[in-house]
Structure formats: structure tokens, C-alpha cells
Design a protein around this nucleic acid. Structure first.
Lengths: 209, 209
DNA sequence: ATACCTGTGTGATTAATATCACTGTTTTCA
DNA sequence: TGAAAACAGTGATATTAATCACACAGGTAT
């Protein structure tokens, strides 16, 4: 992890801050499918995503996982940035979708940097705000629309992050949406009929804008 | 608005900050039912709730209002605190449930205070985090549970904020939950049968813990 | 008191989604 | 290569919630 890479990924930060990050961050590699952070786990450090794609989930009591949003390289896990000094635990499950590299920065630096680097708190604040807005959009989707629109919204988000060729099964989609495979299959079929996409085995090709 | 009142409502802030707030905040009175902030409205100031109870809603395209959470006296509208310098607009509708008093602080102070007062950014951060967690709980309710549990969760939140005797109609509840009056009526009836509550005209008496 | 408005109760119907039961097809791997 | 596992399609049924169509009760205004 060097300063230049960091600068490219997080262009809004200040010079001295890059040095501090490099000096105090610990690089961690996570394999695709592995969890970076589990529900209930104590948060000891803030995580910056250096590489890869991370999916965030909300879990219910039976362990069902409901997808809430993605984190890209250049983003941070908002929740991990605002944990006060106390031992806060995670409310969400973060899973690497692809192999990923994250930089873990011990929480004690958060307070320091907040006061010291204007660019840091701006980063934290905008980061938080963006996640907040994604949550609101997620709420819109489940509160106001049916499975058909939710599926469409979901697919668009995936396409945005991973490209038009989605390597995903109907079952996985159903899990993310807390629906069932059959329902997803049928809805996909309808979308295929409308030429929005093409269904392949274990993958979907998105055609629409 | 004087320093002592402020101290009581926002006990975690610093001395110099109270003075700044008193000097720069503008008190605004809002009647019950009025909107403090509409969707799309440009945010020019951060709002601290001094008195009363505020309900936050998400709106869909047809103007349907979905309740997301309450703001009490002593809390702040998180979204209004993190608007950068740009002209950000509101993503939510904030409505006074009771007559309310809010303190509006022009946005330009946010940046200053963030750097200057540690207690301020801690206030902002914890405030944000708390709202975030409420959103997550709201998502749980709609993603994982049916109307019956959602209604129960909703009523409990109202009771927490306004006491056991809820002055609310079935229609209003249905609007908040984006459901319909008939459904709410029927579910309430079932809860009454289980002795969780008593239904009166235009009000509900909550009996359970 | 009469009419009217608001709030509530209830059956019937419809729509959306979940679940069940089973088939077939592709991929994996022993 | 053959069997098992993973993935997908589909009809039937069940469940949940929304909608429709009323009836009725309790306040309010004239």
C-alpha cells in the first residue's frame, strides 16, 4: 500500500493524511465469498475498500440475508467509521463479492483525524450521507413497489457495479431480495420476453440502458 | 433561546459552542401538522429540535407518505447536518406531529464547528449513526416481516414517543405504513382480542409492555 | 332533531407472492 | 461415463394483503 495508490482511490484527502493512513492502516485480503464483517462482531477498525466489490446485507433472526448496498474500491464502510470510542458492534454483514483488499485503520485514529484533517471529516460525512441515501432508496423499493420493480432496480444496481453480464443464479437473487427462486425465475422470464435481458445458465445478460 | 435550556437539551456539547449556537441559531415555531422540510426543498440550515415531536417520511411519486422515524426534542435532523457546502435538497419530508420549536443554524457554521468543537462532530456522528440504525430497523420490518408485525413495531414506536394513549386513526396508521385502513382495522381487532390494546374512536390505548 | 361527516366493521373479490411438487437440463466429479 | 448436484421451468395451491362495496355508529353543525 503506497501513497500514490491511495491518492488515486481517495482523491479528496490531504497530503499529511495519506501518510498517516499508510503508516497506520493494515492491509487485509479477503477471498470472494468471505465475510469482512459479521453482524454482532465488535468493530475495532474502520475499513477502506482498496480493491474488489463488497456487498452489504442485513440479517434477520433466522440468518436470512437481505441485500442493502454495494461498496466499491474507493469507498469506506460507513458504519465502521462512526463507532465512538465504545465497543460498538456491527449491524450489518459485509461480504466480498470478488476477491477484495481492504485497509483497516484502528478506531483510535478516527477521533484524531476528525479534528486534524478537514478532508477526513468531509470524507466521512459524504460517505455517510451517500450510504444513508442508498438506504432510503432501498426503503422506497420495498415500501412502494412490487417484486417486479424491485427486481429491476436490483438488476440495474448489479449491472452498474459489475457490468452487463451478471454472473448470478436465480436463487442468489431471490436470497438478496428475500423472495423465492420461482418468483424470480418467472419475473426474469417476463423481462426476457420484453427483451430487457437474456437468461443463461447461472448468468444474465442485461440489454437495456 | 438561552444557554441553559440548550445545555439541558443537548448536554454533550461544549461551553463555547452553546454561545455560538445561541448567537447564530434562529428559533422557528411550527404548528402541529405543518411541514418543517419538504422533499426537494433546498437545505439552508441544520435543524435542532428544541421542543415537540417531529415525524420523518419518505415520499413516493404519487405523494404517498411512508413513515421512517421520529425526531424528539434534543435531536437533530441528521440529513440537514451533512449537506456539504453545495445546495443539497432534502430527501425526506419532516412534519411536526405536535406544535414544535426548532433552532435553525445556517449551514456555513457546520464546517467551522466540525473542526473547532470536538463535541459537535461527536454529536453529528452519533446522531447520524442513530438515524442510520433506525433506518436499518425499518428495513428489517418491511423486508422480513408481514403487516401484523410491522403494525406492532409501529405502535410500539409511537407509544415510546407519545405515551400509551395514541391519538391516531386507523387511516393515519395505514398511510404511515403504506397499507389500507381495512387491513389495519382488522389487525388491530386481532390485537384487541389478544388484549394488547383497546380500540377507541380516533385513539388506541396500548396495554402491553 | 335532521342531516352530514368522519371513523370503523365486515364480507366478498382480486391480486401478488410464496410454497409445493415435480420435471428437465447442464455441470461436476468420482 | 455415469451418478449426483446445481440450476431452471412450470402448474397447482395457499397465503397475505389490497380493493370494493357497503352498513353503521358517534360527533357536529344547522
Amino acid at each position: 500500500m503506497n501513497k500514490d495508490q491511495l491518492k488515486k482511490l481517495f482523491p479528496t484527502l490531504e497530503d499529511g493524511l495519506y501518510d498517516e493512513i499508510v503508516n497506520n492502516g493494515v492491509v487485509r485480503h479477503v477471498k470472494a465469498g468471505e465475510a469482512l464483517l459479521r453482524v454482532g462482531q465488535t468493530i475495532r477498525s474502520t475499513m477502506l475498500i482498496l480493491d474488489g466489490l463488497v456487498k452489504l446485507y442485513r440479517e434477520d433472526d433466522d440468518g436470512k440475508e437481505f441485500f442493502i448496498y454495494h461498496l466499491d474500491a474507493g469507498q469506506a464502510c460507513s458504519l465502521s467509521m462512526v463507532c465512538g470510542a465504545k465497543h460498538e458492534t456491527s449491524e450489518v454483514l459485509a461480504k466480498a463479492l470478488t476477491d477484495a483488499t481492504v485497509l483497516a485503520i484502528p478506531l483510535e485514529f478516527m477521533d484524531q483525524w476528525m479534528g486534524k484533517y478537514k478532508s477526513w471529516y468531509q470524507f466521512v460525512i459524504t460517505s455517510y450521507r451517500n450510504r444513508f441515501e442508498e438506504l432510503l432508496k432501498t426503503i422506497d423499493a420495498i415500501a412502494f413497489t412490487g417484486m417486479d420493480e424491485r427486481l429491476e432496480y436490483y438488476l440495474k444496481k448489479q449491472v452498474e457495479k459489475t457490468g452487463q453480464h451478471l454472473k448470478i443464479t436465480h436463487q442468489e437473487i431471490a436470497n438478496d431480495l428475500n423472495s423465492s427462486r420461482e418468483v424470480v425465475s418467472r419475473l426474469l422470464k417476463k423481462m426476457e420476453a420484453k427483451a430487457w435481458l437474456v437468461i443463461h445458465r447461472s448468468s444474465i445478460e442485461w440489454l437495456r440502458k
